[in-house]
Amino acid sequence: MQRFNTPFVYTSAQSRVVFGAGSIDFLTRELDQLGLNKVLIVGTAGQRAFNEELRLKLGGRIVACFSEAVMHTPVSVTNEAMSIVESHQVDGVVAVGGGSSIGLSKAIAFRTGLPQVVIPTTYAGSEMTAILGETENELKVTKSDPKIRPKVVIYDVNLTTGLPVAISVTSGMNAIAHAVEALYAHDTNPVIATLAEEGVRSLVKALPLIAANPEDLDGRSNALYGAWLCGICLGSVSMAIHHKLCHTLGGTFNLPHAETHTALLPHALAYNAGHTPQAIERLRRALDTISPAQALYDLAKKLGAQMSLKELGMPEEGIQKATELAFKNMYPNPRTLEPEGVKVLITHAWQGKRPL
């Protein structure tokens, strides 16, 4: 059991969560409680049809839909959405989808202070945080502010059954990454460590069920539950080298977000493993294994995930560039960061090797 022999600080995040199959039916109630009457729905092109149906269902209080959200929240796309916010005098935002939709909603909230109701359809977990990552000029910059955090999160399991297996797996691994780094965060605490262990345990049990049967409601429910817990971890404590590198790689090389997390996580964990015994002890329990880094690699690969950054589109010359960027605005990390060690970490992920 992890022990904390030194004082710690835990701040409880204030988000209202509505969880369960069919819970999107409570959206009207949640909008009423927030007093919202001129709402903008945001999402990606893939959610356009669903969002238009939602607009018709909710009636006149939905003043517009914006379906141009994309990965890494480019500032240029946010500026387009902001023109709609201003022209329609929007008083709240509803986001439907994964990290792209939620990122855009957060970017609007950061600029306006408008309340958000978020309806996740993936396992990204960003809905539980006051963190925003925006990309401009090939650089992804992270911002933190209380107004970025959504007011309400509606977890409707039914909306995740159509999520393709490949995306379910990488999205779930993305969520696991939040919990892994929360376990060895310099500001972790007993509450977050417990949530992180449970979140990992729930997801690693759920993902094989989803791969075998995408409409398995037990698998989907456990995955969404695990993602929620991992999202709380992400929003409560600091992240480390894994998240720093994912932001760097995503913003610089426009790599797919969840897939990059999946390929990089086992190597980042292996880099830190010898310097964080309490985190490894919890991960061994959650994964039922001696080697958590190898277990995560094997699970993702078995379920069909691409484990090579090269195959995800990263050029080989990007290894050196990413190494250099890792040392700018560094995140706290349990193991001292050495340029050669970080370069090896990135190189192994680029090659898709199983971690040692």
Results as ranks from 00 to 15, higher is better:
residue 231 G to M: 08
residue 154 I to R: 00
residue 195 L to R: 08
residue 159 L to T: 04
residue 213 N to H: 04
residue 136 E to F: 15
residue 169 V to Q: 07
residue 199 G to T: 04
residue 155 Y to M: 00
residue 158 N to Q: 11
residue 141 V to C: 11
residue 198 E to C: 14
residue 213 N to P: 01
residue 240 A to V: 07
residue 176 I to Y: 06
residue 157 V to D: 04
residue 234 L to H: 11
residue 182 A to G: 13
residue 244 K to R: 15
residue 185 A to V: 09
residue 229 L to G: 09
residue 170 T to K: 07
residue 135 T to C: 12
residue 143 K to A: 04
residue 149 R to Y: 06
residue 233 C to S: 13
residue 158 N to G: 11
residue 198 E to F: 13
residue 217 L to C: 10
residue 135 T to S: 15
residue 159 L to R: 05
residue 238 S to N: 15
residue 168 S to L: 01
residue 213 N to V: 00
residue 243 H to P: 08
residue 149 R to N: 08
residue 136 E to V: 12
residue 201 R to I: 01
residue 157 V to N: 04
residue 151 K to C: 12
residue 228 W to D: 02
residue 152 V to T: 15
residue 227 A to P: 03
residue 244 K to I: 13
residue 225 Y to W: 05
residue 199 G to S: 04
residue 247 H to Y: 10
residue 141 V to M: 13
residue 195 L to Y: 09
residue 241 I to Y: 12
residue 176 I to S: 05
residue 174 N to C: 13
residue 235 G to V: 06
residue 233 C to D: 14
residue 235 G to K: 09
residue 148 I to W: 05
residue 226 G to I: 04
residue 208 P to M: 01
residue 167 I to D: 11
residue 234 L to G: 14
residue 160 T to I: 09
residue 184 Y to D: 06
residue 138 E to Q: 15
residue 149 R to L: 14
residue 232 I to M: 14
residue 167 I to L: 15
residue 230 C to N: 14
residue 233 C to Q: 14
residue 224 L to H: 04
residue 147 K to I: 03
residue 140 K to W: 05
residue 246 C to Q: 14
residue 183 L to W: 10
residue 183 L to D: 13
residue 226 G to C: 04
residue 215 E to G: 05
residue 204 V to S: 00
residue 161 T to Q: 04
residue 200 V to T: 14
residue 153 V to P: 03
residue 237 V to E: 07
residue 229 L to R: 13
residue 241 I to H: 12
residue 194 T to V: 11
residue 184 Y to V: 03
residue 196 A to D: 14
residue 226 G to A: 04
residue 139 L to D: 08
residue 163 L to A: 06
residue 237 V to L: 07
residue 172 G to E: 01
residue 179 A to E: 07
residue 217 L to S: 10
residue 235 G to W: 09
residue 240 A to H: 07
residue 239 M to K: 07
residue 209 L to F: 00
residue 218 D to H: 02
residue 225 Y to A: 05
residue 244 K to T: 13
residue 170 T to C: 12
residue 241 I to S: 15
residue 157 V to S: 05
residue 225 Y to V: 03
residue 221 S to N: 07
residue 231 G to R: 10
residue 241 I to C: 15
residue 236 S to V: 06
residue 187 D to S: 08
residue 236 S to P: 07
residue 137 N to G: 11
residue 193 A to R: 13
residue 214 P to D: 03
residue 240 A to N: 10
residue 161 T to G: 01
residue 208 P to W: 00
residue 180 V to R: 12
residue 213 N to C: 01
residue 195 L to F: 10
residue 190 P to C: 02
residue 174 N to F: 07
residue 198 E to L: 15
residue 168 S to G: 03
residue 162 G to F: 06
residue 187 D to Q: 08
residue 214 P to E: 05
residue 237 V to A: 09
residue 218 D to P: 00
residue 210 I to W: 00
residue 190 P to G: 02
residue 231 G to P: 09
residue 217 L to H: 11
residue 151 K to G: 11
residue 168 S to I: 01
residue 222 N to E: 05
residue 190 P to V: 01
residue 162 G to Q: 10
residue 211 A to N: 02
residue 141 V to D: 12
residue 197 E to W: 04
residue 174 N to V: 07
residue 235 G to Q: 09
residue 220 R to I: 04
residue 183 L to V: 12
residue 243 H to V: 10
residue 243 H to G: 04
residue 180 V to M: 13
residue 160 T to Q: 06
residue 189 N to T: 07
residue 163 L to Q: 07
residue 246 C to T: 14
residue 172 G to P: 02
residue 242 H to G: 11
residue 241 I to F: 13
residue 220 R to T: 06
residue 207 L to Q: 01
residue 156 D to M: 00
residue 205 K to V: 00
residue 230 C to E: 08
residue 139 L to P: 01
